[in-house]
Computed example of a mutant assay.
Amino acid sequence: MEISDIFKNKKNRLDKLRRTRRKVDVEETLECKRCHGQFAKSVLKKNFMICPDCNKYFSMSAEDRIRSIADEKTFKEHLKGMYSVNPIDFLDYDKVIEKNKNRSKRDEAVITGVCKINGIKCAIAVMESQFMMGSMGTVVGERISAITEVAGKHNLPLIIFSASGGARMQEGMFSLMQMAKTSTVIEKFKENGGLFLSVYTNPTTGGVSASFAALGNILIAEPDALICFAGPRVIEQTIGEKLPEGFQHSEFLLKSGMLDMIVERQDLKETIHRILVMHNYLP
C-alpha cells in the first residue's frame, strides 16, 4: 500500500465520522418554537420535555408520558396488536398507517393498559400525537372502551391523557361512531361509581374533545393546552371576528369554568395520586 492510500483512507474515515456526528447532533437536538433555543433531547426528557429557558412545553410521546406517570416497571399494555384496517377503502390509507407506524414507533394512536401510580393500581390510556396527530379511528375507540370496561370490572380509577386532532377522516362514519361508543362506555363506568380523570394536553380538539375527553369526573389540563372542537382560525373565518387572546387555551377555559385545574407537567403524578387518595383508592 502506498503512503497516499494511507492518507486517503484516513481522510475517508474522518469524513464518515463527521457525517455520523452531524447526524447524531440533528437527531438529538430540538428547537424551542418560542425562544428558539437548541436543546439536546436527553436534556429535555430529564426536564419533562419542557424548555429550560422559557418553560414552553414540547410534545411528549405516549411512551415518555407513561414513564413520567407510572411507577417503574408496573405498566402492562392492553390490547397490543390490534391494528387499523381500511373500512371504506380510502385511497392510500394503508400506506399512511405504515408511515405513521415507522415514524412514531407505535402501532396506533393510543396506548392503554394498567399501571401503578405511587402504588395505586390504575387503568390508563395515553394518546400518541405522533401517530396521525392522535386521531380517533376504530382501534382507538375500541382500546379506550375496552380499558374502561377493565377499570369497571376491577374497580380501578380510569385516567386518560388526550392529545388529538379529532376523528380520523380516513375511516369516515366508522370513526365518528367512536364518539358515541366511548362516551356510552365511560358514562356507564361513572354511573357504576367509577372515577374518571381526564387530562387535556396540547392539542385536544375535534371529536375527542367533544366525546370522552370532556366526560371526566375531574378535568385537568396542562398549561397553555389548546382545547376545542374547531380551531380558532376556523372560528374566525366563520364569524368574521377576532377572538380574545388565549381563547380555547387552558387558562381561558379555567376562568370560564370549563376546567377544574391546570397542573404543571412535573406535578401531574403527585396531583393525580392525591386525588386518588381523596377518593379512597389506596395501594
Rank of each mutant, 00 (worst) to 15 (best):
P244V: 09
I6P: 06
F212H: 13
F7I: 14
N9R: 15
K269F: 08
A163D: 07
S256I: 00
A70Y: 00
C35W: 01
F7H: 10
I6S: 09
T20Q: 13
A167C: 10
I275V: 13
S135T: 10
K99G: 07
I117Y: 06
M177I: 05
Q178D: 02
S59L: 13
R19L: 13
F58P: 07
C228G: 04
I262H: 00
P203H: 08
N118H: 14
M133S: 10
L14C: 06
Q170A: 14
F212K: 01
K11H: 10
V24R: 13
D53A: 14
R103P: 04
F189N: 05
G172C: 04
Y200N: 10
E2L: 10
S183L: 07
R168Q: 12
T182V: 03
P223I: 10
F131E: 01
R34A: 03
K116S: 06
D224I: 06
G119H: 12
Y93I: 07
K153N: 12
K11C: 08
K255C: 07
M278R: 12
Q266W: 05
E98Y: 14
T184F: 05
I88S: 08
I50E: 09
E251F: 11
L253S: 02
P52N: 12
S135L: 03
Q266G: 02
A180G: 15
D107E: 15
I50C: 09
K33N: 06
E128F: 05
G216I: 00
Q38H: 08
P87A: 10
K45M: 12
T138I: 11
I3A: 11
F189A: 07
A151R: 01
R168H: 12
T74V: 04
A180W: 08
E98R: 15
S250T: 13
Q38R: 09
G206W: 01
F7R: 08
Y281C: 01
P232A: 08
I262P: 01
K121A: 11
N12I: 11
K56S: 15
G81K: 10
T29P: 00
L79H: 08
C54I: 00
S68L: 05
G240L: 11
M60T: 15
R265T: 10
G37L: 03
K101Q: 03
K23E: 14
D53G: 04
M169S: 14
S104L: 03
G206C: 04
